[in-house]
Design a binder for these strands. Structure first.
Lengths: 262, 262
DNA sequence: CCAGAATATTGATTTAGATTAATTTGCTGC
DNA sequence: GCAGCAAATTAATCTAAATCAATATTCTGG
């Protein structure tokens, strides 16, 4: 079941040159990945549904930034909205901090996923977004993306679809938070991660959590302690195996049954 | 404070002809509202940010359907996605029903708001949407909206913004559900409704709830009983006045304080 | 106008998950 | 290599909201 590939393998396969801002000719020795055309994620990311010529046009506006290290911010709450970002490697979390200092995680982002779509309407980002590990991203200035969408109906349609997926996803979270138990939430979270890892050709049954139990709790509306307890409980039931950040899904069918009632 | 206008007043001000599908010349005696240009909501709805000529083009693709009566469905879960809808009068709720028959309300829609943006990505609606009272809507076939967006950069931008607002709104709900108490949720819900009523020039302090306590509960992740109890509690604290579906907000400042901590 | 159904309220009891607290494990930088 | 800190686990207690139950009110269709 594809257990050979691991998170680390992905990270290694994408080397990043120090100053990728300089638009370089196609085959730069420091990067296997300076263009959308050659990017291993192009089937999952913005270029999907675009033809060669169109991808090339998209390529022109993508800025491949320096890598981010753990804790670095992509942007902060109330920063002026400028770009959306595609995760190239690693992972990010977005969160809001309320006046009283309590933080709430609003989303996690894995390779091939698009970050920063909060902000288009308000012209400011409503979340902060921060790297959970050493990560790299592609920055796409929104005004240019908009202009290009205007020329390429495929891109416009695809971007509508991406935003819409975001809406659909948020509504699933709505259902989850308004009616699932702690165990159902956790099972659903693990299965969700699993299929997102599968999407980028990583093992859907064995993976490393890029986030802390605290992050998961904030995202699922649970406390750290509850998340931890549920993990142990699921392990005792032989549905998963947990070793700190490493998760093995032993019985996906039964995990699905847990949330199946809903 | 604008208490003169009421829900009923709005309903009356918009009369609807029986077969509005026939595109009619500007001044039809049966409707004060057969074009976006003359619609009292045009400052809040899709036409916002469009100039006269552009509004006219939008007008050409809008279908003004027959009115819906309470309980009528705009579309159902898994129906093929075809259109988005703008509420002209009345109100709607969208919901999903899970396998075990438990329903969850995912959103409420008031005049000037856009329904049906779930579905663009999946080509099927993921919610069902139903009128909460006698209501009328404008239907906008999405393929045509997309085509038009492609010609009118303003419309494209505005539609991005509308979708983005949806995302931002859903994320607020995420925060609400993952960390607010029952009282905080309820206060936040009432204040939210209040400002949405204000947006369509209805009183922000005295309004009729178009939905049941059960709907509110499903939306907020609470039981009917809890919603009812919180209403009574807020009433006892003199923050609101409740008479069945009629709500008066007596102390908006204090209501804001309830959620202010967050 | 009335009967039955849907909706809403209120109270008593239970419970899932929060809170509090203490301990263990793992990780980072000197 | 280990000191100090962040993250995770586990247990005991508490509590907000669910559940169960009964009644009251409002709406609807004949």
């Amino acid at each position: 079941m594809n257990e050979g590939s691991s998170k680390e393998a992905l990270l290694q396969s994408i080397s990043i040159d120090a100053k990728p801002q300089n638009r370089a000719p196609k085959f730069c020795p420091h990067s296997s990945n300076v263009s959308c055309t050659s990017c291993r994620l192009n089937e999952l990311c913005l270029p999907i549904a675009l033809n060669k010529t169109e991808i090339h046009q998209l390529d022109q506006i993508v800025e491949r930034n320096r890598p981010y290290k753990k804790g670095d911010h992509l942007y902060r709450q109330n920063d002026k909205f400028k770009s959306v970002y595609a995760v190239r490697s690693g992972s990010f979390k977005s969160y809001v901090v309320s006046d009283n200092g309590v933080g709430r995680v609003t989303g996690f982002f894995l390779p091939g996923e698009i970050i920063g779509m909060d902000g288009i309407a308000s012209t400011q980002y409503v979340n902060s977004t921060q790297a959970l590990e050493h990560s790299s991203i592609c920055e796409i200035p929104f005004s240019q993306l908009e202009k290009l969408s205007h020329q390429l109906p495929n891109l416009q349609h695809h971007f509508f679809a991406i935003m819409d997926n975001e809406i659909a996803k948020d509504q699933q979270v709505h259902t989850l938070l308004s009616s699932y138990t702690a165990e159902e939430r956790t099972a659903s979270f693990l299965l969700g991660l699993s299929s997102r890892f599968a999407r980028v050709s990583l093992s859907p049954v064995r993976f490393l959590l890029p986030m802390t139990r605290g992050d998961i709790g904030e995202y699922l509306g649970l406390t750290v302690e509850t998340v931890s307890r549920i993990f142990t409980a699921l392990q005792r039931k032989k549905l998963i195996e947990v070793n700190n950040r490493e998760i093995v899904l032993l019985d996906m069918t039964e995990l699905r049954n847990i949330i199946g009632a809903n």
